[in-house]
């Protein structure tokens, strides 16, 4: 009895220790966003700002490109997410259900594309954007991100797992492929679409390396690119940690909200990855 109590206590102690390790950095981030620079330097660990000031927030919105980056991030994220979900489910459906020449080869190509590491595409993407005259434009920022091999793969796997009978019925009733897809297949695929939307939303909201080789003009920066720019010294004098931490905090909030609201979909997604191997 005493042993189980002791081991239970130990279990909780370990859990709480790790919860602190994983969450306290965020507490520090939030607290220091509302400190003065001197206070942040003197007491970085303290969770309570003294004195409390929202000066850094004011400066983020009035003294940096933050509002522009926020607008760009929203635009890029919305367009890219819609594009990836739509194109991903169309291609995934075709690869799973439709009979056409070249389907097997395309699927093999898709598997190969999933193995291409994004970081080795930095110079290649710059070359093609430069050649097409898309470098440093909204088109260059958005279009290359519109399709994603993993998204296609996830949707194909989903359609493979769903019985064909419902669509067959619609098709026998005389609906064409496009009609069947739009009014029968997509509504049926709602859970997979939600998962894919969340996955693609966080992916495009957090996207950094692509913006590095696609745009140069600060008016085209997204939040991650603008933040990286703040850190590398565009602020001028001082470390200005409260401002940087505040900007990073604001950039994290949308993903945090989505994460808390749709948590079960995140978990499902990660375990889908585990089955893949």
């Amino acid at each position: 009895m005493i042993r189980t109590l002791a081991s239970r206590f130990l279990g909780y102690a370990i859990l709480i220790f790790f919860a602190l390790v994983f969450l306290y950095p965020f507490v520090i981030q939030i607290a220091n966003s509302f400190k003065t620079e001197a206070n942040a330097a003197a007491n970085p660990l303290s969770p309570i700002p003294s004195p409390f000031t929202d000066d850094s927030l004011t400066r983020i919105f009035e003294g940096t490109g933050f509002p522009t980056w926020l607008g760009n991030s929203v635009l890029v994220t919305v367009v890219v997410t819609v594009g990836r979900v739509l194109f991903g489910s169309m291609a995934g459906y075709a690869l799973s259900r439709l009979q056409f020449r070249g389907r097997k080869a395309l699927f093999a190509g898709l598997i190969a594309a999933m193995a291409v590491p994004p970081v080795v595409l930095l110079i290649p993407k710059f070359l093609v954007l430069n050649q097409l005259g898309l470098y440093n434009s909204y088109a260059g920022l958005i279009v290359p991100l519109l399709a994603d091999a993993t998204g296609v793969f996830v949707m194909k796997q989903f359609f493979d797992s769903v019985p064909v009978s419902v669509e067959e019925a619609a098709r026998i009733d005389g609906a064409g492929v496009l009609r069947t897809f739009w009014s029968v297949v997509l509504p049926m695929a709602k859970p997979a679409l939600i998962t894919l939307t969340i996955l693609m939303f966080t992916g495009s909201w957090n996207e950094f390396p692509h913006t590095l080789v696609a745009v140069q003009d600060p008016s085209l920066f997204t939040l991650p690119r603008g933040l990286a720019d703040l850190v590398s010294g565009s602020l001028g004098s001082g470390t200005q940690y409260p401002l940087k931490l505040g900007a990073a905090l604001l950039a994290t909030i949308p993903v945090a909200i989505i994460f808390v609201v749709f948590q079960r979909y995140f978990v499902r997604d990660a375990s889908a990855g585990a089955d893949k191997g």
């Binding site: 950094f208 939040l223 991650p224 850190v231």
Partner: peptide, 10 residues
């Protein structure tokens, strides 16, 4: 799930 850039700042 957070942004690699934002967390690097922290």
């Amino acid at each position: 799930v957070t942004s690699s850039v934002a967390i690097s700042v922290v």
